[in-house]
Design a protein around this nucleic acid. Sequence first.
DNA 1: GTCTATAATAGGATAGAC
DNA 2: GTCTATCCTATTATAGAC
Lengths: 216, 216
Amino acid sequence: MGEADGAAVPMTRGARTRQRREEIVAAAARTFAEQGYAAVGMREIADAVGVRGASLYHHFASKEEILYAVCLTVTREPNEENLPLLDAAGTPSQRLAALVDGHLRHLHRRRTEHVVGLHELAALTPGHRTEIDGYRRYYQRRVRDVITAGMRSGEFTVPDARLAAFAVLDMLNGLSNWFRPDRDLDLDAVVSGYVDLVVVRMLGAAHCASPQAPRP
Amino acid sequence: MGEADGAAVPMTRGARTRQRREEIVAAAARTFAEQGYAAVGMREIADAVGVRGASLYHHFASKEEILYAVCLTVTREPNEENLPLLDAAGTPSQRLAALVDGHLRHLHRRRTEHVVGLHELAALTPGHRTEIDGYRRYYQRRVRDVITAGMRSGEFTVPDARLAAFAVLDMLNGLSNWFRPDRDLDLDAVVSGYVDLVVVRMLGAAHCASPQAPRP
DNA sequence: GTCTATAATAGGATAGAC
DNA sequence: GTCTATCCTATTATAGAC
């Protein structure tokens, strides 16, 4: 394992740079979430990473670019990870139940970033704001579409898909503002409780917990 | 109507001062909502009111005190105006329906202030933050209590009042982030739709729209 | 109650050495 | 890729005249 073959340890430099970028984004998300974007200085982010303020500009052109990276994490990831659940096999109830599950688990896994992404959109440049809003609107539309599909199939008895989609997503996203696992309320309990509240109760599906055959 | 009786035109000076205070709070809420608290300077607030920056300090000791005033509006007012609806006569379904109605109308009437109050709490001083959180927690507890009452009376079939209270309030508060009246979605439609989604569908009440006698 | 003028500080960002 | 040093500007807040 000498240095004869450079390809044996490929992209070591690039990987390290990428890792440092992610350290910066993670540290920034933490401080932004606690104090608010505009109240945090580049020096404070740098301290959290363990470098000097000027070094951040080797990785990001501006403070807003760091915020943009945080916001991308919580708008693009759900589109890439959760929306495929809506394209999978199954009834609208089953597919929406899977999305609610995935959505809540992503909200928790990226809890810090979501707090920023849901509160600091006003600080983005107009171009970045438009892009982020586009991801969010697409996600919203896909949720509305699966509700509409469930209404057509007769599974959902709700009268207005648009209103229901707002209600569902606001209810889900609210989680990141209050959920802290404790002795009598862990994530699995919230997830199954919310799937029931949304899919069975609010939308009116007869059942949805586990994959099932279509009704005869 | 001479100057013999000072009480004939009472508090004229105080009323004007109070009015200017409210102008400042209103202008600040607008700019905070659009750009975020920390991104707004005292000069910008002053411009919106039509005075110089220094003049604001005659009415408020600091920028944070203005934010505190905005946050008080959207945490104390709902406690004072909406919570009495939970103490009125009627079944838990009826009382919660009235609260949902009042809550949504307040969210809309104080739309700008709510955007600030829901996004900028991190910028409050610890003391103010604690006070505001107290109002919010009390409101949340009252909603949970009426849900518990409905569970005991058998009207609500939901399994967990705490989880349901979070779901309901997050769903309601989300309104201020997206609702703009348009041709096919006015406030009355959203209110009646959300009352149905929350009280009838999510919580499981058989009906609640209008006052009714208890079931035999 | 509002003004002008200014203090005191901190902010984002850049230049250039290593 | 990170550092030191620094520029330039904007900020909150105060002092004191009117």
